[in-house]
Every structure is written in C-alpha cells, then in structure tokens.
Amino acid sequence: MAAGGDHGSPDSYRSPLASRYASPEMCFVFSDRYKFRTWRQLWLWLAEAEQTLGLPITDEQIQEMKSNLENIDFKMAAEEEKRLRHDVMAHVHTFGHCCPKAAGIIHLGATSCYVGDNTDLIILRNALDLLLPKLARVISRLADFAKERASLPTLGFTHFQPAQLTTVGKRCCLWIQDLCMDLQNLKRVRDDLRFRGVKGTTGTQASFLQLFEGDDHKVEQLDKMVTEKAGFKRAFIITGQTYTRKVDIEVLSVLASLGASVHKICTDIRLLANLKEMEEPFEKQQIGSSAMPYKRNPMRSERCCSLARHLMTLVMDPLQTASVQWFERTLDDSANRRICLAEAFLTADTILNTLQNISEGLVVYPKVIERRIRQELPFMATENIIMAMVKAGGSRQDCHEKIRVLSQQAASVVKQEGGDNDLIERIQVDAYFSPIHSQLDHLLDPSSFTGRASQQVQRFLEEEVYPLLKPYESVMKVKAELCL
C-alpha cells in the first residue's frame, strides 16, 4: 500500500493539533497551500530580480507567473513527485505547466533550498508574528487579574506546605514575570531571523556568478533584492546548502521555554482548584465526569500541561538535527523538520489560546482563602504575639514557653481530632496574655502579614508589564474561544 493518505478522510490519521486544537490561522501558515504558494512567490521574486539585473526574462513571463501564483494543481504535483521522487522539481514542473512561456526560467540558477529553506524562514517569521500578540493578550488578562487582587491576602506555599502570606495578585505576578520573559525572547528570536537568500547549491553562489558572467556586484544585488522582497532586513552571508540548523534550535528553545512557563502556571491553577481557592472557567453544560456528576475538573489547565510537556520535548529534535548536518548538509534534517517545526508552533498556539481562555474567566473564592488563612495564621502570628507581650512588660522566655504549650495543644486538636485551630481562643482565655487581649485582632490582621506584596504588584505592572504590552494595544480586544 502506498504511503500517505487522504487526510480529510475519517479513515486516515490526522494530527489532533490540526484537527482538534490549533487555530485556523496557525494551521494555514503550515498548510501545503501556504507552503507551495510561497515557493511560487519566491520563484517570481527571483525572476523579477534577475530581470532587473539584466537576464533575458520578459515582462510577459513575469506576468504569467504572477497570474498563476494561486493556480496550484495539487493532484498534478503529487503525481509528479511520485514520478520524480523530488518535491521541488515536482512543483517546478507543475508551475511550468500553467506558465508555459515562463517554464524555462522558473528556478533559474537556484537549488531546492532556495524555495525550501527560504519558505521555512518566512513561515517561522509569520508563525512567530501570530504567537506574539496571543502571548501579549494572556499577559494582559493576567495583569488585569493581578491588579484587581493585588491586596487580597492568601496563604503562600513553599514545598506545598503553608508559608508566609502573600497576595493573590502577587502570586499571579510570578506567572506574568515568566511570560514577559517569554514574550521578550519570542520577539528577540523573531527579529534575529535572517533570510537564507540566493546562495546556490553549497552556499557559494557559483551558479549565479556564472549567470551574471562573473559580476560579483550583481550577485550581491540579486541576494539583497530577493531578501528585501521577502520582507527581511538581512540575509546570511555564510550558508551551506541550507541555512544553519542552529536557527531551528533557537526558535524551538524559546517555544519550549514558553511551554515550561505555561505548565507551571496551569499546575498552580490545578492545585488551587483542589484547594477550592480558584477555578478555571466551567461552562453551564460542561460535564466533569461521566460517573461523578459533582466533579469540576480543571480540564483546560490539564490540557495545557499535557501539550506543554510535548512542546518542551520537541527542542531535542533540532538539537540532534543540527549535530548531524555533515559538511554542507545531509538530508537527516528533512523529514524531522517537516514534523517538529509545525508541531512546535501548533502546540504553542494551542496552549496560548487555551491559557487566554482560562485567564479571561478565572474565578476566585475569597471566603475559602480566608478560612485557610484562619487555619494557619495563628501559628504564624506567634512571633508577633511574643513581641507584643514583651512590649507590655512580659518575659520573652516565659511567653515563648506559654505559646509553645498552647500551640501544641491547638495542633493536637487540628491533627488528632480534625478540629479547627483554636490557638487564639486559648490565648484569649489565658490570664497571662490579658495585657494584649485587646491587640489580638490587630495582630491577626492578614494584611499585616503580606509585606509589600501589593506595592510590588503595582510597581511591576507599571514599570515592566504595561510598557512591554504597549506595541500590542491594537490587538488586545480579541477574545479566545474554545470549541473543545
């Protein structure tokens, strides 16, 4: 049975990233139509530049190519590739079939990587351009969430054990800070992308030097003109047959890092959902379990974690691919890159769409948070109580021993009897502590235990987050809708 299948058929496997999760716009960027249309555009740009620099290419040939950029006979191309065992030459023939007058000058002087690699770089750039505003929107939604809850005390956790208090907004800023680093890295790697350009079979530009009869300047002009037509500021000066596969490492490393950030955020949300302090959106008709109707599973956060793990592992592909590119190139890269580049971007696209949807509907339960604080705060307040007693004339050592005994009794009630923490009640009825009984409410005010959390939130948002989001103001209103 021949390899390949009808990918629109229910009898043929289709990647869930495309069929179930990723956005239509990201799927289109990695589609065959987008790819092969870009090949034709690159052939047109090459012909236009070659004509401008004096090669015998007519206006009629150029116009014929322009008129057929979208006229792609995919069936013919597939048949040609089956016959020739070469995808680029299959599309040269297919393009030439609908451009008979231009057929002889299509791909003039070029090698397969002229269309293959340059198209990949265009796709990487455009895919990054799709991700950047999506990530900015996630940051914006979380920034709104953090600002609104900047002063809401909550129990902090280290080692997932109760620690000092923080605020809900401050905790959210930990998430935002990681995503801001990801946004900066995505922008950097996007701006650092260079075009492969017009380089020939081993990167020496020998074929173009021959076409222009040894004119170095025209060869350099050709490279520059096509690079500018493709919208790049610069091209690699040095290439082998391909652009260095280190570029793929750079791009997928940034995406993998984004995956790590999203995994951490969504894990926190899942843990908070278990504590009943916070939940992701839950639709009115949504079913959490087929057997347990009360369940409210954090399905979206779980999906993000599941896909983020996949995204983090994909960076190993370009690392290994770059390491086995012998001399000017081997074909070890080809099949692998067809999979890992598309999957990385479709996965990143999915987790950003999902995280935006989550961040637009996060639900906080202040009463649950308050109750958990009441359970733990008495123990945390013991040092403040000791200091207040010393100020009232008591002995630190005597007070410490009193607190120690009462704390152990209260802990026994919590752990052995399943009761509430009654340390404060014990202190309130103990005559030894009568000098500070009137101060206990103040000493137990949760806001006095959150330090500068709310001020940190305000400063972080104003100095770091809002300036970073400013270039994306025009796209901030787009909502994230999930079908599944």
Rank of each mutant, 00 (worst) to 15 (best):
S9D: 11
Y13I: 12
A18C: 14
S19V: 05
P24K: 14
C27L: 13
S31G: 12
R33L: 12
Y34T: 03
F36Q: 15
R40G: 00
Q41E: 13
W43Q: 07
E48N: 05
L55A: 01
E60A: 11
Q61H: 12
I62H: 04
S67W: 10
N71S: 11
D73G: 08
A77P: 10
A77T: 15
E79H: 12
E80M: 12
L84D: 14
A90N: 06
A90V: 10
H91V: 06
T94N: 10
F95C: 05
G96I: 09
G96E: 11
K101E: 11
A102G: 09
I106R: 00
G109I: 00
C113K: 00
N118Q: 02
N118K: 00
I123F: 05
L132F: 11
L132D: 14
K134V: 09
V138C: 09
S140G: 14
L142C: 11
L142F: 12
F145L: 06
A146D: 00
S151P: 10
P153Y: 06
F157M: 09
H159F: 02
P162N: 06
L165T: 00
T166M: 10
V168P: 05
K170P: 02
R171Y: 01
L174E: 09
L179F: 13
M181Q: 10
L183F: 08
K187M: 10
K187Q: 13
R188S: 06
R190H: 13
R194D: 05
R196H: 15
G197P: 01
G200M: 01
T202F: 01
A206R: 02
A206I: 05
Q210F: 02
E213S: 13
D216Y: 08
V219I: 09
Q221F: 11
K224V: 11
E228S: 09
K229T: 06
G231W: 05
T244W: 04
R245H: 00
R245E: 01
K246L: 03
D248K: 04
E250P: 07
S257H: 06
L258W: 15
G259M: 05
V262F: 07
V262A: 15
D268R: 00
L275V: 10
E277L: 03
M278V: 13
E280C: 05
P281W: 05
E283S: 15
I287C: 13
S289V: 01
M292T: 02
P293L: 02
P293H: 04
K295P: 01
R296I: 08
M299G: 06
E302N: 00
C304Q: 05
C305T: 09
A308K: 02
L314R: 10
V315K: 04
D317Y: 00
Q320K: 04
S323E: 04
W326C: 06
F327Y: 12
F327N: 07
L331P: 00
R337T: 01
D349G: 09
T350I: 15
I358E: 07
E360F: 05
R371T: 05
F379S: 04
M380I: 05
A392F: 07
G394T: 08
G394D: 07
S395G: 12
Q397G: 09
E401C: 06
K402W: 01
R404K: 13
V405I: 15
Q416V: 08
G418M: 05
G418N: 03
G419C: 10
L423C: 03
E425R: 14
R426Q: 09
A431Y: 06
Y432I: 06
P435G: 08
L440M: 08
D441R: 10
L443H: 00
D445V: 11
D445S: 15
S448H: 15
R452E: 07
A453L: 03
A453C: 12
S454D: 14
Q455R: 14
Q456F: 04
V457A: 08
Q458G: 13
P467W: 08
L469Q: 04
K470A: 14
S474A: 15
